[in-house]
Design a binder for these strands. Structure first.
Length: 318
DNA sequence: AAAAACGGCAACCGCCAAGTG
DNA sequence: GCACTTGGCGGTTGCCGTTTT
């Protein structure tokens, strides 16, 4: 059994100390932890349990605070616009849950990861889409043609819900500027400027702190500039309009098949979409379902290929 | 009514990078 | 440059409630 396995594995570096409690947190523990963190602030997690009088390892305390107790955490079901945003961001960033969470106020990386694994990835698979790369499943091509596929999965039912600094169509020159700036910053950062960008994404919406929490040092420096650039760049990428060509044909086909969901017999509100989504030959430059539409984006903006690969490598690092 | 199967999600684990002395 | 600590991330596990048989 699992317990025996764990015992055989021996103590873990962090939580192996004998006598430490594991498993679900009680409300009493929650109260102790929350009041302690409110009083003393975040950080020094390893010594926090002792100081707070908790029989938990520091890592467990941090996780509980970050994923459940933080005041900014939004509890409750994922809204449709949040789901849409998750899909877009996942397509752009892959399994970078913390990055994705940084764009969705009140949601944690763990929550988004769970939601993806339990809902969205299955939903995509049902629709013949490989959730790892958002491309049609090779074995499901035929099915994908005949089964409903959901362009609405990539449409924002409520674009205004996305905190965006780029409310209109992403223009090539804007993209180039923002992206180039971002890349310059990356290159200035010993080849892994992406770390800064992760920070950049985290910060604007993570009011409770995070890697770039200005509340800790109060500084607003170059990193904040980086934040703005990358933040707006990312906002641009997830802007609804960038997906418009991708859906034009589908929308035409849909006629009265409204953008929103249809009520299935099981009441699941499964989105229903016409068939030919992935295989139409659009008159406009269409971003096929699953096509890394950044390809066209980069081609339009003239960004060099190696740079593009850099981006793809980061964004697609699953 | 009971057992089995399933699904959702909180929590844990291992690894890595940054910071520090 | 090295060792150590700390915080953070993504993958995975396992508990528990719900649904199905």
């Amino acid at each position: 059994m699992e317990v025996e396995d764990k015992q055989r594995r021996g103590p873990t570096p962090c939580c192996g100390k004998v006598g430490l409690k594991r498993g679900p947190w009680t409300s009493e523990e929650d109260e102790v932890l929350a009041s302690f963190v409110r009083r003393e602030g975040e950080g020094r997690w390893r010594t926090l349990p002792k100081r707070a009088g908790l029989l938990r390892c520091g890592k467990s305390c941090r996780l509980r605070w970050m994923n459940y107790l933080r005041p900014s955490i939004k509890h409750g079901p994922i809204a449709p616009d949040e789901e849409d945003l998750i899909l877009r961001l996942h397509r752009l960033l892959g399994n970078r849950w913390s990055l994705i969470a940084g764009r969705i106020p009140g949601r944690t990386d763990n929550e988004i990861k769970n939601y993806w694994n339990t809902h969205l990835s299955k939903k995509l698979v049902r629709q013949g889409i490989d959730p790892r790369n958002h491309k049609p499943l090779a074995t499901s091509v035929a099915d994908a043609i005949h089964q409903p596929i959901s362009p609405q999965l990539y449409r924002n039912p409520n674009p205004s819900a996305i905190p965006s600094t780029a409310p209109t169509l992403l223009r090539a020159e804007d993209t180039q500027k923002n992206f180039s700036d971002t890349l310059n910053l990356q290159q200035n950062d010993d080849g892994d400027g992406w770390k800064n960008n992760e920070c950049a994404v985290d910060k604007p919406l993570d009011q409770e702190g995070g890697k770039c929490d200005a509340g800790e040092d109060g500084g607003i420096g170059i990193e904040c500039y980086t934040d703005d650039i990358f933040s707006s760049f990312l906002d641009s990428l997830i802007n609804d309009d960038i997906f418009q060509p991708q859906h034009n044909d589908i929308i035409d086909d849909e006629n009265n098949n409204d953008i929103s969901r249809s009520n299935n017999s099981d009441g699941s509100n499964q989105r229903v979409v016409p068939a030919a989504y992935a295989y139409t030959a659009p008159s406009v430059p269409a971003y096929e379902l699953g096509t890394f539409w950044e390809d066209d984006l980069m081609a339009q903006t003239g960004i060099e290929e190696d740079v593009h690969e850099q981006f793809a490598d980061h964004a697609g690092k699953y």
